[in-house]
Write a protein that binds this DNA or RNA. Sequence first.
DNA 1: TTTCATTTGTTCGTATGTATT
DNA 2: CAATACATACGAACAAATGAA
Lengths: 81, 81
Amino acid sequence: MTDVPDWNPDAVGVAYVYAAMAEHLAARIAAGELVPGAKLPGERELGQQYGVALGTVRRALDVLRERGLVQTLPAKGTFIA
Amino acid sequence: MTDVPDWNPDAVGVAYVYAAMAEHLAARIAAGELVPGAKLPGERELGQQYGVALGTVRRALDVLRERGLVQTLPAKGTFIA
DNA sequence: TTTCATTTGTTCGTATGTATT
DNA sequence: CAATACATACGAACAAATGAA
C-alpha cells in the first residue's frame, strides 16, 4: 500500500475539480491516512489546502457523504465515518 | 382568480426559457401566490425547481427586477417588491 | 449571562467553457 | 458569428450553531 499521490487538479483525464477532490479524499481514507473518527480540516481550510473554493469543497464532501465515507455535523466539522 | 398553471418550459409559443420563467413568476406574483416582502427561494434552488440553469434564473430575475417586481439583496436573497 | 472564536450553512455576484440554434 | 442555455468554479458576505472563556 503506497501513499496517495499529491493533489493535482490538473491531472490528465480529470473532468471536474470537485470529483477529483472527492476521489483524492476517498483514496486517503482507503489508504488509512484518514482514520474513522478523525476530523477533517474545516471546509475553508480544506479549500486552502486543495487550492479550491468553498463551493467546490462542499461539493466534494457531498459526494463523500452520499457514499457514507464521511459525516458532517453543523458547527462541529466533518468526520471520517 | 385561478391558480397559475404549473411550470412548463416546453409550452407552445415559448421563445426563450428565461422569458417564460419570468412570465411564470410574474403571474404568481399577480395571482397573490407570492406576496410583497416574501423571499423567493435562492437562485440555485429556483433553478432546481424550474429545471433551468443558474444563468437562466438570473436572466429571469433580471427581467422582474427591471419591472420593479422584485428586489435582490446580495447574500440575502430576492424579495417580492 | 455574555462574549468570542470556530465551523458549517446559505446566498448573491461573477467568470469560464461547452453545446445548440 | 451571436444569442441562448447549461454546468462548473471562484469570490465575498451574511447567518446560525456550538462550545469555551
